[in-house]
């Protein structure tokens, strides 16, 4: 996909007193492990970039706002009464399968289960549940091809609403079984980081553009999480070769008008990983109703391309391994 004539990264808005750099708050260059902190979307309004977030809310088109309001309305059911009749779980593996099938029946296209860990919880927040059921629902590609334009922004919000709906229904289903469950809907979630959980749950891997890449949908999907104590078997992370592709592919780096994507992995809160320059990305994100260029130009996001890329990467790895083994064998020959 090629984005034609994206707006220039010049801005008719700004700060009189610039806030603390988002990269600093995110812990760019920091060697020690620490929890993530809010910068932009934060209802407590203590986040450094709240004014810009407020401005973003006000200049948003009605098409996106109506989905957000509808999402807020449906999220009143994110938590609720738990049935007093508890279904005992003798086989967590069978229960995990049952839950995944339910999620798929409700419309989820990606489902995985993992344990909720510290790196997925925002600083100062608590998640009183053990398991995370990570859910992904794809966005309509024909709408997202309009990035960076409000039409794509509207589709993003529609997808968040849809994936929240699935999470809410799943949480209600679990509560009806007598187990507590809480649907962390998006983009309104302020306690939980969905991407690290989804990666741990085997939905995909982190891409160079800072979003998760799945084999089937690339980055053209949205995430939600259901947190619960229902005993479930957890999934393992997957290796679909995203790093192999991202190390050589420069597509998002080149196509990002704000020049926000680092070509190499960065040290962020004690971990080397792909990272996007927050201070460059967010103003462009605000200017263009949510941008999303990087996730749409990603080769994995092109329909049908993901499985092909994974197959290629795996074949290359196999070839390299066999060449290496042959070399070792030959080297060992007397």
């Amino acid at each position: 996909m090629k984005v034609n004539d994206p707006p220039a990264p010049t801005y008719a808005f700004g700060y009189e007193s610039p806030p603390t750099s988002g990269n600093e708050i995110n812990g760019l260059g920091r060697k020690d492990k620490a929890r993530a902190r809010h910068i932009f979307h934060d209802p407590s309004e203590n986040a450094a970039w709240t004014a810009l977030d407020e401005f973003f809310s006000r200049i948003a088109v009605w098409g996106t706002v109506r989905h957000i309001l509808a999402n807020i309305w449906q999220l009143r059911r994110q938590n609720g009464p738990v049935s007093t009749h508890r279904v005992e779980v003798d086989d967590p593996c069978a229960m995990a399968e049952r839950i995944k099938t339910k999620a798929q029946d409700f419309g989820a296209k990606l489902v995985g289960i993992t344990e909720i860990s510290d790196e997925a919880i925002y600083d100062g927040r608590e998640i009183p549940y053990r398991y995370a059921i990570c859910i992904g629902a794809p966005m309509k590609r024909e709408e997202m091809l309009h990035v960076p334009h409000e039409r794509a922004g509207i589709e993003v919000m529609r997808s968040y609403r849809e994936v929240s709906r699935i999470a809410i229904k799943l949480a209600e289903e679990i509560r009806a079984m007598g187990w507590p469950a809480y649907a962390y809907g998006n983009p309104n979630s302020t306690d939980i980081l969905h991407i690290p959980l989804a990666i741990k749950a085997g939905l995909g891997q982190l891409g160079k553009h800072g979003s998760m890449i799945s084999e089937e949908f690339g980055s053209n999907f949205r995430l939600c999480t259901v947190a619960t104590n229902l005993p479930l078997t957890m999934d393992d992370p997957v290796d679909i070769g995203v790093d192999d592709v991202c190390l050589h592919c420069q597509r998002c780096v080149i196509d990002c008008p704000a020049d926000a994507i680092f070509p190499e992995k960065q040290l962020v809160r004690g971990e080397k990983k792909w990272y996007v320059d927050f201070d460059k990305c967010i103003p462009y994100f605000v200017k263009t109703d949510g941008c999303a260029i990087c996730i749409e130009v990603c080769p994995f996001s092109e329909p049908g391309r993901g499985p092909w890329l994974v197959e290629r990467v795996m074949a290359t790895r196999k070839k390299r391994t066999s060449m290496h083994n042959n070399g070792s064998t030959q080297g060992n020959d007397p």
């Binding site: 209802p43 957000i68 309104n188």
Partner: peptide, 16 residues
């Protein structure tokens, strides 16, 4: 104006 934000845990579990 508080346009597009919600707060996790703003809706507590209520039964009646």
């Amino acid at each position: 104006m508080r346009t597009v934000r919600t707060i996790d845990r703003q809706f507590v579990a209520e039964d009646s």
